[in-house]
Write a protein that binds this DNA or RNA. Sequence first.
DNA 1: ATGAAAGCGCTAACAG
DNA 2: CTGTTAGCGCTTTCAT
Lengths: 357, 357
Amino acid sequence: MDDTPDHNTEPPVAAPPRRSRRKSGGTTLRDVAKLAGVAPITASRALNTPNAVSDAILERVRAAVEQTGYVPNMLAGGLASRKSRLVAAVIPTISGNVFLEMVQALTASLAASGYQLMLGQSGYEDSREDELLEAIIGRRPDGVVLTGIMRSPQGRQRLLTSGIPVVETWDLTPDPIDMLIGFSHEKVGEEVARYLHARGKRRVATLSANDQRAMRRMKAFSEAAIELGMARPGETEVPGWVVPAPTNVGLGRSGLRELLARHPDIDALFCSSDMVALGVLTEAQAQGIAVPDQLAVVGLGDLSFARDLQPALTTVRIDGATIGSTAARFIVDRSQEREVRDGIIDIGFSIIERDSA
Amino acid sequence: MDDTPDHNTEPPVAAPPRRSRRKSGGTTLRDVAKLAGVAPITASRALNTPNAVSDAILERVRAAVEQTGYVPNMLAGGLASRKSRLVAAVIPTISGNVFLEMVQALTASLAASGYQLMLGQSGYEDSREDELLEAIIGRRPDGVVLTGIMRSPQGRQRLLTSGIPVVETWDLTPDPIDMLIGFSHEKVGEEVARYLHARGKRRVATLSANDQRAMRRMKAFSEAAIELGMARPGETEVPGWVVPAPTNVGLGRSGLRELLARHPDIDALFCSSDMVALGVLTEAQAQGIAVPDQLAVVGLGDLSFARDLQPALTTVRIDGATIGSTAARFIVDRSQEREVRDGIIDIGFSIIERDSA
DNA sequence: ATGAAAGCGCTAACAG
DNA sequence: CTGTTAGCGCTTTCAT
């Protein structure tokens, strides 16, 4: 509170040698407005809602922008409007290749609506996911796309209270945080088991990464296989080999060797990713094992190379592109206060029958 | 220009029923400060420069943060401090797999320093790159990582005047915008030609994506091959086949077929990516062509699967992880006003000799 | 070591 | 359709 003497009859003085922050030097909306001879807000409108402005002014503002090379500061805009036009995505890792299609579609769809993607990699560990979350929420993104279900209660809570639209993907849950685009990993396992059973395979096995979702697929696969009678007497589960995520071709090759050493009689193998499956195919070829007759191979992901392998890889297709573009649409709609109907969807999967099984 | 009557002797009234913007409802630094019984700036210091604050206050602020679940708004912080802690990366496409390692390393290294990555895909077209740029600069990132050299003069200019640290990667140029981490595509072509020549191959060919850098590698390869005497009389260049980027396995398979139809006698093939090379290997196997004896195959990228193929793929290794982590370091250093020495480096490449050539 | 004031560059709210 | 004003939530600058 200033102790201005009460006999001061003038409006508060503007004088006290005021400090001033260094101006960035960059062109601001103010500069543009001044040049165009309008108020800053009018220039703002000319850029953001051109219809709300007369043609003459629109023209002048555009010219001023052109002349100055003005680029709006979205940090400032975002702070004022509470719309950052940023969307964060959390994926376990980009190098597994399984999520590429989704990220690709997400980036593209968002860009088409003027949004940018912030990428975070959690590395299959729930702990890092939690850390990432704080960094993400701090940027006040207009949406968050999660790969998988957010398990950690703190994470859920944080996201919930942040009010940011959330899309969980790549899995199903009865109580999503917000929106959801996924499929049932259990069903995948069951269907693949049925698929192999129908093709006469009776001695099936699994080769899986040790991540949550892959393990659930394999468990369901094993249970369905047992149920279908594809088990030796006394066996309660199907032979399996687990490798660390993210998977790669080498793990597929060594995995097959390990499996064969323990169970030389297996006639079909469900792999947790196409990369592992490629490894299995490669090792089988190297060992002179006939695919699919001697050993049927099923992958997951339908990566771009799957159809072009020799033999062409039978695999479970997850439509990552649809997951990505739908997630983008959900978030853009939400962030523009449009209602999102059917924000919880099971996009399913399909077994693409090719030559390896 | 208010027309306040000049007989007004009172200080401007504070009264007029003032509108107020809806508060976000979220916890702000102010709330935390109030709870801790300190000024906002002190709370700010407790969080950002803990050393500048007494232990007692530090404790109280931390408790208040804990209690309220406060998450700093980095948009606001970035606006005030001119540090967004965001770094933008522009890559042609994520789906080609060649840049994955770099993106992976970039994300990880940045995250370790508290920075986040914004991903933009330009799609191998310079035009989209220009568009992206505006969106990027608008967010005032603390750095921009470009894949390849920025060709467009407007783009260069924009970046230059923006004052944002820029790292161009994956290529060399005498006049980079700012920092540079790359290698010579011409040298790659030459070295591969020499490599094949030394292994007795005399009828070499190329299978390349139509992107700028790949084409330059192939051109240099062809010229070196000619120079080395690996040409039929009158030939001015080596046989080649061009496919659209991004490459995939299918293009490799069909590419080999096309090449063989036109030049049945080729004995070595330099592919512009490991994905294409995998396609070539697959097609060769399908056709019963012996690799490397009948046909040597060299890829580029040393993707994770290269070593595990059968035959293991001889390829040109580009250390994407180093590109990514170095770029991250450069940008973090710069953004913290630390000097970056040797900001222009040629990281080279190496030919990884395996079984396919 | 702590605080008051003044913005960063923009847009929401209200008024004409 | 255009303008005024008051912030968005934080940090800088200056002062103590």
